[in-house]
Design a protein around this nucleic acid. Structure first.
Lengths: 175, 175
DNA sequence: TCATGAAATTTCATACTTGAAATATCTCTA
DNA sequence: TAGAGATATTTCAAGTATGAAATTTCATGA
């Protein structure tokens, strides 16, 4: 589309004359590839080192921040996955003795899930390795670059912020 | 860990005194949340508007860039998913008449997959909407921010660049 | 040429994921 | 306080995803 007869060679950076729409698309594709690559690497390492899957690790990471536990819905919102999904992961983690369900006192619809002592120990070990891996994978980023990236990603640049609950939780949990 | 007795209130940005390791972890989590949110939004819109899934859309997008087709392995590498995964998605797309398999002339182990005319038409429609959605979702990012982000994401900041094949292909396909 | 190892694909078991439907419980209002 | 609507969870069918094993074909050196 928009068949440009001839393209003037770009002087500095490539694609400087591209419409913003194409630029944003390019950014999204780059973002997606980057996070997929990192995710794949972390999944592989978790599997080899701890026989652990990424979804289960994510759930344990969420629970670790909340000794009192979280409800299924809180987990689902925080991890941005469907509620039915959480059920299955918790089932498997519970079968391994990593987490346990506890009925919610005030609301009989809800269930609290929390790490067992065994789960907490296991997570502590994995978290240490995980942080080191991330540090290694993102190793070539300098302090300034990291700060810039985080700041950019934090800009309210997304029309669709479907995780308002998330924001609340993060605000509450920030230490 | 590193129990800091009391935290001096940060003057400018938060977490400025954090070790680089924690910073990188934070960046990764932010990156992951961002791309998950965008992915969820795009998935939902594709589903509602075109009854299309994201994985199938991704495959069609890859094939659209290569009229001559791609082998299963090329697809698998480009999309960063397992080879067995591609088989299933292609099976379903082929059943819908969106793509077709063609035997590789020189290598009887390989198979070429390409968009059918119907698939190409369908993808053209979806791609237009998809680009508009991305443009909308990333709408609050200005030109400069986008360029900065792309540049940062392009920095060879990742030790684990498992997709060397990808790089080749992208280099070849850049227009 | 023949054996051996590498590469492309499919198949398989298992796990993850979604969206929708089904249940159970809660909340709030008429 | 009954009952309508909202919320929390589970269940379900279908699709997605992985890693390993099995098959087929290729490539290469003895």
């Amino acid at each position: 589309m928009t068949a440009q007869p001839q393209r003037r060679p770009n002087l500095k950076l490539g694609a400087k004359t591209e419409p913003a729409s194409k630029q944003r698309l390019r950014l999204w594709l780059r973002l997606l590839r980057t996070s997929r690559a990192i995710e794949a690497e972390l999944r592989e390492r978790l599997r080899v080192a701890f026989d652990m899957t990424l979804p289960k690790f994510d759930v344990m990471a969420a629970l670790q921040r909340r000794p009192a536990g979280m409800t299924m819905t809180e987990l689902s919102r925080f991890l941005m996955v469907s509620n039915g999904n959480v059920t299955g992961i918790i089932d498997r983690l519970a079968a391994e003795g990593m987490v346990a369900r506890r009925p919610h006192e005030e609301d009989r619809r809800a269930t609290f899930v929390h790490l067992t002592p065994k789960g907490a120990r296991q997570f502590a070990t994995m978290a240490k390795a995980h942080e080191a891996w991330v540090n290694e994978i993102l190793g070539n980023f300098g302090d300034q670059e990291i700060r810039t990236m985080i700041a950019l990603l934090n800009t309210p640049g997304f029309k669709s912020n479907r995780s308002s609950a998330t924001t609340h939780q993060e605000a509450r949990d920030v230490r």
